[in-house]
Amino acid sequence: MDEYITLDYGSGGRKTSALIRELILPAFGNSFLSSLGDGAVLPGAEQLVFSTDSFVVSPLFFPGGNIGKLAVCGTLNDVAMAGGEPKYLSLSLVIEEGFPTEDLRKILASAAEEVKKAGVSVVTGDTKVVEKGSCDGLFINTAGIGVLKQPGLSPAAMKAGDAVLVSGPLGNHGLTILLARHPQMLEADLSSDCADLAPMAAALYGLGADLKMLRDPTRGGLATVLAELAESADLGFELAEKSIPVDPAVRTACELLGLDPLYSANEGKLIAVVSANKAEEALALMKQFPEGRNAALIGTVCAEHPGLPVLRTPWGSSRLLTALAGAQFPRIC
C-alpha cells in the first residue's frame, strides 16, 4: 500500500485488490468474505445470498440510465452472480446540500422501476445530507439479500475444457460514462448496458451443476475478471480475440482514444463458465433475453499455463490478458 489512498485504489484493478487483501481481509476476513465473490452465501434453513455495492458515478444521468437504475441493477446482479434470486434490498442515500429535488425524484423513480420489474422490495434504507462539497451530488449504497438457487458457483468449480461465454458486447458502460463526462472529446452513439441480469442468471441456473461460475465484469472489465479468476482457480484460459463481441462504436471510440474495450466497465454483462457440452444450450438460454442476443462463446478453460488467460489474436500471435493496473486514460498524442 502507498502512504495515501490514490484514485488508482478505486479502479477495480490490482490496486483495489491490494486494498482488499491488505486492509480489509486482515481486519474482517472469514470464510464468507475471503472467497471474494460478488456476494456471500450464508447458512440457515434457507441459504441466503448477501451483497452490497456503493455507487458514485459521475455524471448522475447518462445515456442508458442513471445512478438510481445502476444502484438497483448493480446489486441485483451481484446477488444473481452468487447464485441467488434477489428478494430484498436496502437503499441508502448520501445527498449533497443543494441537490435538486427534481433530479432526486427522477433518480428514485428509475430505481423504483427496476425494483418493480425485478419483483423485489426495498425494505430498509437511510438518508444523509452532507454539506456542499462533501460529496459529488449524490452517492447511493444498496445491499441485497436473495435466496440461494444455484449452490456451488465458484472459480473452484471450473475444470479444464469448460466453455467461457459472455452475454454480449463489452465495454459500453465505461465508454459511455467517459464520453458523458467529456462530451467534447468525441460524439458517439453509445449507451450504457446497465441492466438487471438476474432473470438471465436464473435461466442459466437451469443447467444445474454444469453451470460453474458467473461473474459480472464491472470495473476493470473482462480482462481483469479473467486474470483474477485464472489466478484464484489456478487454471488457464484460452480465448479467441475475434470471438469477443465489441460493438463497432465502442471499438472505434477505443481506437481513437487509445483505450482497450477489454478493460472498460460493463453494467449489464455476465461471464458464464459452463461444461463444454452445455455451451450451446447456455448460449441459447442467454439469447432469449434482449441483453443476451449477442452472447458469444469466447474461449475455454485449460490446464496449461495455470493462472494465465491467453488471448489468440486474429494475426496468429498471442498475448496474456492481465489485470488492470490503475485507471485507463486516453492517450495524449
Binding site: 502512504e3 495515501y4 489512498i5 490514490t6 484514485l7 486514460f329 486516453p330 492517450r331 495524449i332
Partner: peptide
C-alpha cells in the same frame, strides 16, 4: 492528462497522483 499523474519525478515519492492524495 491522466498519463502524467503517476509518473515519478526525481524521487519515487514525487508524483502528481500522490500529491493529489496528500
Amino acid at each position: 492528462y491522466g498519463d502524467m499523474l503517476r509518473v515519478p519525478g526525481t524521487s519515487p515519492e514525487l508524483s502528481l497522483l500522490k500529491e493529489k492524495a496528500r
